[in-house]
Amino acid sequence: MEKDDSVNVLGTPLTVCGTDPVTGFFRDGSCNTCAADRGSHTVCAIMTAEFLAFSKYVGNDLSTPRPEFGFVGLKPGDAWCLCAGRFLQAHDDGCAPQVNLEATHARALEIVPLEVLRACAAH
């Protein structure tokens, strides 16, 4: 699997999203992507209790540890490469997490408008 260019939504080099726990489609800490990443794990989101509850409610429990998959479970404050479609769904439902724009891959823009990402940018 060849990675797409590591460029963020601002047109600059993609920065690391999170390493504790290690995130990303490639589990390299960055929201890098490729053609095989069907979920577009490209939005670097900072988890909140509200978003984690929403995600669990819509069928993707990110807070419960799954040791059989090497997944420790997320808690508020953790940075995670979120599927762009799930981020947009959370935004539309009023519970989007904050976003690290420098660590959000440019491919996210295929699904989420830049204005939406900017409105949720972590300060």
Rank of each mutant, 00 (worst) to 15 (best):
D4A: 06
V7W: 06
V7C: 03
V7F: 08
V9L: 08
V9I: 13
L10N: 06
G11A: 06
T12E: 15
L14F: 07
T15I: 10
V16L: 09
V16D: 10
P21V: 06
P21W: 01
V22T: 12
T23Q: 05
T23R: 00
G24D: 02
G24T: 00
F25L: 08
F25P: 00
F26K: 03
F26P: 00
R27H: 12
S30K: 15
S30I: 11
S30T: 13
C31A: 08
N32M: 04
N32I: 01
C34Q: 01
C34R: 08
A36Q: 13
D37N: 10
R38Q: 13
G39N: 12
S40L: 14
H41R: 14
V43Q: 02
C44I: 10
C44S: 11
A45V: 02
A45I: 03
I46C: 05
M47C: 12
M47G: 07
M47N: 08
A49G: 08
E50K: 12
F51N: 11
F51S: 02
F51V: 07
L52R: 00
L52Q: 12
K56T: 11
K56I: 05
Y57K: 14
V58Y: 02
N60Q: 09
D61I: 03
L62R: 05
S63M: 15
S63R: 13
T64M: 05
P65N: 10
R66D: 14
R66H: 05
P67Q: 13
P67Y: 09
P67R: 04
E68F: 10
E68N: 02
F69H: 10
G70A: 07
V72P: 11
V72C: 01
V72E: 09
L74P: 02
G77H: 08
G77F: 11
A79S: 10
W80I: 03
C81I: 03
L82S: 03
L82D: 01
F87T: 02
F87D: 07
L88Y: 13
L88T: 04
H91N: 15
D92M: 13
D92W: 07
D93H: 13
C95L: 02
C95G: 00
Q98K: 10
V99F: 08
E102I: 02
T104S: 12
T104G: 03
L109T: 01
L109K: 00
E110S: 11
I111L: 14
I111Y: 05
P113K: 07
P113S: 12
P113I: 07
L114F: 14
E115I: 04
A119C: 01
C120Q: 07
A121R: 11
A121N: 06
A122I: 09
H123N: 15
